[in-house]
Structure formats: C-alpha cells, structure tokens
Design a protein around this nucleic acid. Structure first.
Lengths: 135, 135
DNA sequence: CCTTGACATGGAGTCGGCTCCAACCTGTAT
DNA sequence: ATACAGGTTGGAGCCGACTCCATGTCAAGG
C-alpha cells in the first residue's frame, strides 16, 4: 500500500508518516525495489499504534521507545508494560485536570446564560477566583 | 503582592506571568511608582482565570480574546458565553478521545501483565500486533 | 524522447508556549 | 558606597511536533 493511500485512510500527511519513521515511532517501512514505501498490514499496524498513542497525548519519543522495546523481543515485556502504565497514569491525570476545569467552565457558562437574559453578570461567591473575571 | 509571591502561590515562573500579560491573557497589572508589578486581588483573579483556562488546554490566544471581551463591557456577555462554550466543547472532545485511548491502553497493559507471567504475549484478535483500530 | 506526477531525501522553517538572557534600575544591608 | 536582591524590558532561544521545500529518481503516457 502506498504512502498516499495510508495517509488518506488516516487523514495524516505523508510528511508526518515519514517523520514518524525517521524518529522511530514506527519501524522502517517495507520498500519496493526502487525505494518506494510499500506499507504491509504489519506496517499499518505500527502506524495505527503510533496514531493511537499520539491521540492519547503520548510524546513521540515515548512511542519510539515503545517501538524499540517491541523490536527487542520477549525480554522487554515488563519494560513495555511499565511504559504503558506510565502513559496511562499521565492520561488519567490529564483527564482529571480536564474534568475539574470542565466543572468551572460549566458554572461560568451558566452565569453567562443568566447574564445574557438579565443583562447582569453575577457570581455566587463574591470574589471567587475564576469569577474575578467580572469587574 | 509581588510577582515572586504570585509565582510561588501558583508554581509558575515570573517569565510566564509577564508573558501572559504581554500577550493579553491577563490585563495590564498594577504597578508601584517605580514600575514594579504589584498584583491586586483583581489581578490575581485574572491570573487564576488564565491558569484555569490553560489547564483546560485553552490556547493562550483564546484566553486573550476572552479577556479582551471582558474588558469591553456588558455588551459582550453573549460573545463570552459563546467563547466559553467553544472551549467546553473542545475539552469534551479531548476527554472523550483520552477515554477511548485509555481503554485501549488498559487492554494492552492487561495483555502485558499476562505476558510477563506466561512469557507469551497474545492478543484476542489475530492481527492486533499494534492494536489496530479504526479511526 | 520528453513531460508529468508520485515518490524519495536531508534540511530548513513554523507554531505555540514558554524560558532565558543581557542590560538596566532601585531599595535595603553591610 | 558598594554589593546584593529583586524587579524591569525587549528580544532571542528552545522544545515538541510537525510541515515545507529544493532537488533528485523513476515509470508510464502522449
């Protein structure tokens, strides 16, 4: 499968794909005789893996590390597990952060909904931090 | 309150604080006669607002836009509400993405836990070497 | 044959979000 | 009075993650 096709399937640019390969976030891709990349199912599996991890906010460097471990064989199972656990804990922290922020945001939005109605913006607590935005 | 104090309270650098001010993510801060920043409660409210929004992944530019609207007065209530709603929808999307990814990660980790025990890494689905997934 | 177009490469450029720095000012302590 | 601690500024630099570009190769079509 050509790079073009893969890019279309996953809505990414060829540059990104080549970039991932260059830095090791995916292993070297199969080539035709004249050096053109020809992605096998397995190559595509690696691409998906990289995209998944990126989606999860995992830094490319960490993905490269994971790929490297994978290619080192069965001795690295526990290292890979640890790496993934590390990634998980980071995502969890991030989700938590976002959820806290989401609540604040909901509150603010509700105040603004009211303000649009009444023409007056008011907060429940007099000088609540994020509410100090009203002057 | 000095910049130092504010930085300690929020664990950020003075550079960041000055940067936020420069780009308008917080309004111009009060100064003493000799030009030293002297954060009032209100200034700190703005700082907290900026940090909250950044924590939520809102780009600094969007924060600056929000601040600008706030300073323009009561005519901008609905614009501010819309901006916050936009921010909210982005956070929601992000959380969703992360949660999807989290599931995959959990699955992988469980496979690796097993692999560390048994010495054999196996996936439920045959060609899941990198946990292929649709996008 | 020559052009076209899809690919290759290495390296430079971009962008967001800081972070660092040199050069300068000022109030307090030794 | 001199050193020091803590501010100020504008501008440069850095980092991660792409993204763009000049130049080159090759295969197929007119």
């Amino acid at each position: 499968m050509t790079i073009k096709k893969v890019c279309e399937n996953y809505r990414i640019s060829p540059d990104t794909l080549r970039y991932y390969e260059r830095i090791g976030a995916i292993p070297p891709v199969n080539r035709t005789e004249n050096g053109i990349r020809d992605y096998t199912e397995q190559d595509i599996g690696w691409v998906e893996n990289a995209l998944c991890m990126r989606n999860a906010g995992v830094p490319v460097e960490m993905i490269a590390e994971y790929v490297k471990l994978c290619r080192q064989g069965d001795e690295t199972f526990s290292a890979r597990r640890d790496l993934l656990k590390e990634a998980r804990s980071q995502i969890l922290k991030q989700i938590e952060k976002y959820q806290t922020e989401l609540e604040r945001l909901e509150y603010k939005i509700s105040r603004y909904e009211a303000a649009v109605e009444t023409g007056k913006l008011v907060w429940d607590e007099p000088d609540c931090q994020s509410n100090a935005t009203e002057l």
